[in-house]
Simulated assay, not measured.
Amino acid sequence: MEVWIGRQGERHGPYREDQIREWLRSGQLSRDDLGWYDGLADWQPLSVLFPQERPTPPPTPNIYAPPQAAVHMSANVTAFDYAGFWQRVGAWIIDLIILTIPSMIAAYMLGGVEAYTHFIAQFQSNADMTKALHDYVDATESSTFASIIITYIYYTLFEASKWQATPGKLALRLRVTDLDGQRISFVRSAGRNVVRLMSLVFGLIPVICYLAVAWTQRKQGLHDLMASTLVLNGSVQALPPPRPQSSSDRGSFNA
């Protein structure tokens, strides 16, 4: 069963039943939050839908434990599940395949196909290959530029979206966040992808963005380091909905 969560007039989800139960026990969801699933006549408090699930009481304080601030700082360092090098390369390959479609459309509309056909004809006729290659680069300049812009917009919009990920990252259940694990802004996403844009402009292998992942502590690529971002395991759908700023609107939701 999949359950939708309602908070402050917004609908989140759907989430699996086992996720809802776990978040109720951990306190990440309130029993006063509203829930709805297919077949239910109206939204109901989670305390009605899952009456047996209650927050687990906190453990008895340990007077010999380190100060709370130190525990909090330690938790912040280790709480994130960073995506690895090959996961990110895999997501990049999926996105590259997807981007082939709009890039081919741009090439067709801007004369790239004709330029390629002409280049192949010159190659087969044993023409001056230096001149043929130079002519091909000149003829495809517009379509190449369009492909670069499409790629830049694709990454910038998707990574700043509510999904926090491109389709390739979504397929591998990854998400892009700031250093606190929160959704990044459009401006930060645009800055993050400048490195990717420059690598395309100068003809560099895009994988150079990811090489730093292999040795940085938080598995950050060059573009992550520049924009102060992280790539974490777990899609947004696998996370509980954000806590409201205040409880004044709790208990009312309009679908």
Rank of each mutant, 00 (worst) to 15 (best):
L40H: 09
F158Q: 01
S26Y: 04
Y136Q: 15
L230F: 14
V231M: 06
S199I: 08
P57C: 10
S103F: 04
E22G: 08
N76D: 14
F119C: 05
V201M: 09
G39I: 08
G168P: 06
L197E: 01
T60V: 14
S161W: 01
L96H: 08
Q122H: 03
H118L: 14
G234D: 06
E22V: 03
L172D: 01
A160F: 00
N76H: 12
L200N: 15
G203N: 09
D128S: 10
K219N: 12
I63Q: 10
Q44F: 03
Q19G: 02
N126G: 12
T140A: 14
S199M: 12
P14N: 07
A160M: 05
S147M: 09
G13K: 09
Y116S: 11
N126I: 01
D138W: 02
V207G: 00
K131G: 00
A106V: 06
A70V: 13
E17P: 09
R16K: 14
P59K: 03
S248G: 02
Q87M: 13
L29Q: 02
Q182V: 00
L24W: 10
V137M: 15
A127F: 01
A65C: 07
T117Y: 01
R25W: 03
P244F: 07
R31A: 15
A127N: 05
A106Q: 09
F253Y: 15
E22W: 02
Y210L: 15
L179R: 04
A212C: 14
D42L: 07
S252N: 08
I5V: 15
L172K: 02
R21W: 08
D180E: 15
W4F: 15
S47G: 10
S147V: 04
P242E: 02
P167Y: 03
S74W: 08
W43A: 13
A127S: 12
M73T: 11
P51C: 03
P58R: 05
S103W: 01
V176Q: 08
S26H: 08
V3T: 09
E141M: 11
L222N: 06
F186M: 13
P14F: 02
Y154V: 04
P241K: 07
V3W: 06
P167C: 01
V113K: 05
V194G: 04
V195N: 00
A69Y: 05
W43E: 00
W163P: 01
Q164P: 10
Q52T: 13
M109Q: 12
Y136E: 06
S189Y: 02
S30T: 00
D138L: 13
L99I: 13
F202R: 02
W86G: 11
F145E: 01
D249E: 11
D18A: 14
P51A: 06
L29K: 03
S74M: 13
P240A: 11
A121S: 12
R88Q: 12
I205R: 03
S125R: 09
Y116R: 05
R16N: 08
G27K: 07
E17M: 12
R250I: 11
D95T: 10
Q237R: 11
L40C: 05
I149R: 10
W23C: 08
F123W: 10
P244M: 05
R243W: 03
S189W: 01
A160N: 07
Q28R: 15
